[in-house]
Protein backbone atom coordinates (compact mmCIF):
# COMPACT_ATOMS: atom_id res chain seq x y z
CA UNK A 1 0.00 0.00 0.00
CA UNK A 2 1.16 3.50 -0.72
CA UNK A 3 2.13 5.50 2.29
CA UNK A 4 -0.57 7.68 3.69
CA UNK A 5 -0.18 11.34 2.99
CA UNK A 6 1.14 10.85 -0.54
CA UNK A 7 -0.80 12.55 -3.30
CA UNK A 8 -2.06 9.74 -5.53
CA UNK A 9 -3.09 9.86 -9.14
CA UNK A 10 -6.38 8.12 -10.07
CA UNK A 11 -4.66 4.99 -11.38
CA UNK A 12 -2.63 4.58 -8.22
CA UNK A 13 -5.77 5.14 -6.15
CA UNK A 14 -7.52 2.39 -8.15
CA UNK A 15 -4.60 0.04 -7.54
CA UNK A 16 -4.61 0.89 -3.87
CA UNK A 17 -8.30 0.11 -3.62
CA UNK A 18 -7.74 -3.26 -5.31
CA UNK A 19 -4.98 -4.05 -2.80
CA UNK A 20 -7.32 -3.00 -0.02
CA UNK A 21 -9.99 -5.46 -1.21
CA UNK A 22 -7.39 -8.24 -1.15
CA UNK A 23 -6.26 -7.25 2.33
CA UNK A 24 -9.90 -7.17 3.46
CA UNK A 25 -10.46 -10.65 2.13
CA UNK A 26 -7.43 -11.89 4.08
CA UNK A 27 -8.62 -9.99 7.16
CA UNK A 28 -12.01 -11.74 7.01
CA UNK A 29 -11.25 -15.45 6.51
CA UNK A 30 -14.07 -18.01 6.40
CA UNK A 31 -14.94 -18.57 10.08
CA UNK A 32 -15.25 -22.09 11.44
CA UNK A 33 -18.87 -22.77 12.32
CA UNK A 34 -19.43 -23.78 15.94
CA UNK A 35 -21.03 -27.08 16.92
CA UNK A 36 -24.20 -25.19 17.79
CA UNK A 37 -24.68 -23.93 14.25
CA UNK A 38 -26.81 -26.75 12.76
CA UNK A 39 -28.97 -27.25 15.90
CA UNK A 40 -29.51 -23.48 15.85
CA UNK A 41 -30.74 -23.64 12.25
CA UNK A 42 -33.21 -26.40 13.13
CA UNK A 43 -34.36 -24.50 16.21
CA UNK A 44 -35.13 -21.47 14.02
CA UNK A 45 -36.98 -23.65 11.50
CA UNK A 46 -39.05 -25.29 14.25
CA UNK A 47 -39.85 -21.91 15.74
CA UNK A 48 -41.03 -20.64 12.37
CA UNK A 49 -43.03 -23.81 11.77
CA UNK A 50 -44.72 -23.46 15.16
CA UNK A 51 -45.63 -19.84 14.56
CA UNK A 52 -46.98 -20.70 11.08
CA UNK A 53 -48.93 -23.62 12.56
CA UNK A 54 -50.46 -21.50 15.32
CA UNK A 55 -51.29 -18.80 12.79
CA UNK A 56 -53.07 -21.42 10.65
CA UNK A 57 -54.98 -22.64 13.69
CA UNK A 58 -56.01 -19.11 14.57
CA UNK A 59 -57.10 -18.51 10.98
CA UNK A 60 -59.10 -21.76 10.96
CA UNK A 61 -60.75 -20.88 14.27
CA UNK A 62 -61.59 -17.44 12.95
CA UNK A 63 -63.12 -18.85 9.76
CA UNK A 64 -65.15 -21.37 11.82
CA UNK A 65 -66.40 -18.66 14.16
CA UNK A 66 -67.35 -16.42 11.21
CA UNK A 67 -69.28 -19.27 9.59
CA UNK A 68 -71.12 -20.00 12.87
CA UNK A 69 -72.04 -16.32 13.27
CA UNK A 70 -73.34 -16.27 9.69
CA UNK A 71 -75.55 -19.32 10.32
CA UNK A 72 -76.92 -17.90 13.58
CA UNK A 73 -77.63 -14.53 11.97
CA UNK A 74 -79.34 -16.25 9.05
CA UNK A 75 -81.59 -18.20 11.39
CA UNK A 76 -82.43 -15.13 13.45
CA UNK A 77 -83.25 -13.05 10.38
CA UNK A 78 -85.44 -15.69 8.82
CA UNK A 79 -87.34 -16.14 12.10
CA UNK A 80 -87.83 -12.42 12.70
CA UNK A 81 -88.83 -11.28 9.20
CA UNK A 82 -92.47 -11.90 8.08
CA UNK A 83 -92.83 -14.19 5.10
CA UNK A 84 -93.95 -12.85 1.71
CA UNK A 85 -97.68 -12.03 1.27
CA UNK A 86 -98.33 -14.68 -1.32
CA UNK A 87 -97.15 -17.33 1.03
CA UNK A 88 -99.54 -16.47 3.84
CA UNK A 89 -102.64 -17.96 2.24
CA UNK A 90 -103.23 -20.75 -0.17
CA UNK A 91 -104.79 -20.16 -3.58
CA UNK A 92 -108.13 -21.59 -2.49
CA UNK A 93 -108.22 -19.42 0.62
CA UNK A 94 -107.37 -16.34 -1.43
CA UNK A 95 -110.16 -17.15 -3.91
CA UNK A 96 -112.66 -17.73 -1.13
CA UNK A 97 -111.71 -14.46 0.44
CA UNK A 98 -112.27 -12.73 -2.89
CA UNK A 99 -115.83 -14.16 -3.06
CA UNK A 100 -116.74 -13.60 0.56
CA UNK A 101 -120.19 -12.03 1.30
CA UNK A 102 -118.56 -8.92 2.62
CA UNK A 103 -116.60 -8.34 -0.60
CA UNK A 104 -119.73 -9.12 -2.67
CA UNK A 105 -121.71 -6.56 -0.68
CA UNK A 106 -119.18 -3.85 -1.22
CA UNK A 107 -118.90 -4.72 -4.90
CA UNK A 108 -122.69 -4.53 -5.48
CA UNK A 109 -122.95 -1.29 -3.51
CA UNK A 110 -120.23 0.22 -5.65
CA UNK A 111 -121.86 -0.89 -8.94
CA UNK A 112 -125.29 0.44 -7.82
CA UNK A 113 -123.84 3.77 -7.00
CA UNK A 114 -122.26 4.01 -10.44
CA UNK A 115 -125.55 2.94 -12.13
CA UNK A 116 -127.64 5.60 -10.34
CA UNK A 117 -125.33 8.32 -11.62
Amino acid sequence: MAKQGETLNPQELERQLDRLWEAYRRACPDPEPTAAFLPGVWRLIEKRRDSTYSLCRWAQALVGAAAAVCVVLGILLSAAAPGPVFNRTTYVEALAEENSPEVQLYASAFSNENGSR
Partner: peptide, 19 residues
Protein backbone atom coordinates in the same frame (compact mmCIF):
# COMPACT_ATOMS: atom_id res chain seq x y z
CA UNK B 1 -22.11 -23.36 5.96
CA UNK B 2 -18.42 -22.42 5.87
CA UNK B 3 -18.71 -20.68 2.52
CA UNK B 4 -21.90 -18.89 3.53
CA UNK B 5 -20.42 -17.78 6.86
CA UNK B 6 -17.31 -16.48 5.08
CA UNK B 7 -19.39 -14.45 2.64
CA UNK B 8 -21.49 -13.04 5.49
CA UNK B 9 -18.36 -12.18 7.49
CA UNK B 10 -17.09 -10.06 4.60
CA UNK B 11 -20.47 -8.54 3.82
CA UNK B 12 -21.36 -7.43 7.33
CA UNK B 13 -17.88 -7.00 8.81
CA UNK B 14 -18.94 -8.03 12.32
CA UNK B 15 -17.56 -11.46 13.24
CA UNK B 16 -19.68 -11.84 16.37
CA UNK B 17 -22.95 -11.70 14.43
CA UNK B 18 -21.92 -13.96 11.53
CA UNK B 19 -23.43 -17.18 12.90
Amino acid sequence: RKRVLGTIARLIGRPEDVE
